[in-house]
Amino acid sequence: MAALAPLSTYALRLGDDALILGQRLSEWCGHAPTIEVDLSLANLALDLIGQATHFLGVAGDADKLAFHRDALDFSNCLLVEQPNGDFAQTMARQFLFSTFQELHLHALASSKDERFAAIAAKAVKEVAYHRQLSSDWVVRLGDGTEESRARMTAGLDWMWRFVDELFQMDELEAKLAKGGAGVDKSELRAEWDRRVDAVLAEATLARPASRRPVLGGRRGHHTEHLGPLLSQMQFLQRAYPGAVW
């Protein structure tokens, strides 16, 4: 892929995060424990895919970017591509990401770039609900039965090594943050810790032990889980390029 302008690269990262998590969540469609939970998860997925459409639209042709790139060209963080696992693992991932995404979008709503500011201002309301919904599930399962507690503990444990990447800054994003278009994500960490710890305390869960962080998503170095996700998401446009309905 040809090199993109810094703002486009940033938009691509934001869009890829939303797109991949949206696709992941949509895998639950028709499989959730109840019809109500099925709708909750589908709503979350659709919110995220809507956000992806906006951000990828800033980076270029959203459909082309979503359906005609290979894994190496995706710049989403590793957390969002992690498998759904059981419902607790899905909610653990959602809780960690939505808490981050809400802080990120809240700051981005003051971006000097009007497009970023407008998308973020709309999306942050959606994500505030995602954070609320997933936090409630973390508490409910964590402070639930022995089995639900074990599953939520395992889910958080699985996801925890991908947390540090959320706040990682590189030269490109640092420059954008300095210029007022982007956000210094490293500054969000303290508030994220505070919010996550508050929910974990309510859930009577211990914070997972620190592990060596896994990094690389922003540079296209993905876990083995992204490929199968893309092959499913992109199948139709790869097999029938330009197909519409």
């Binding site: 109500e36 939970v37 709708l39 909750s40 609900y129 609320q132 919904l133 409630d136 409910r140």
Partner: peptide, 9 residues
């Protein structure tokens, strides 16, 4: 949960 399900449904 009932409020959230009502909202989502």
């Amino acid at each position: 949960m009932a409020l959230e399900h009502a909202r989502d449904t």
